[in-house]
């Protein structure tokens, strides 16, 4: 299975990773090789096999509805790139 330049550009947008024009060829090759490796899967007969999401056949535990957290805004915002009046600041969305 090959992956096209267009595919790479598409997934780069979905993943929000800037890919410069000169990087696309190398990615085309590397991702193509990885997908070749992965394509072995198609040979497996999995018709009657249920997909496995977790190694253990366990079920989810539920937590009681009790407040256990206290305000730690100061500690969290001390490591933030930009804050003001308790808000995280990010650049505007340009639509």
């Amino acid at each position: 299975m090959t992956i096209s330049r267009k595919d790479i550009e598409k997934v780069a947008v979905l993943a929000r990773i800037r890919v410069d024009e000169e990087q696309v060829s190398a990615l085309e090759k590397d991702l193509g090789n990885i997908l070749d490796l992965v394509d072995q899967l198609s040979a497996a007969d999995t018709d009657s096999v249920a997909p496995m999401a977790h190694p253990l056949d366990a079920v989810q535990r539920l937590r009681p509805d009790e407040v256990t957290e206290t305000d730690q805004r100061e500690a969290f915002q001390a490591i933030a790139p930009a804050t003001e009046n308790g808000l995280y600041l990010v650049p505007r969305v340009i639509e």
């Binding site: 009790e66 407040v67 256990t68 957290e69 305000d71 730690q72 915002q77 995280y88």
Partner: peptide, 24 residues
Amino acid sequence: ATQTKIFSGSSTAYGAEPNTQANA
């Protein structure tokens, strides 16, 4: 109208100061 969030023990009370009810 739960007391806490769906995946954490932070309060869901309305009207608190920004980000004071957002835990790790």
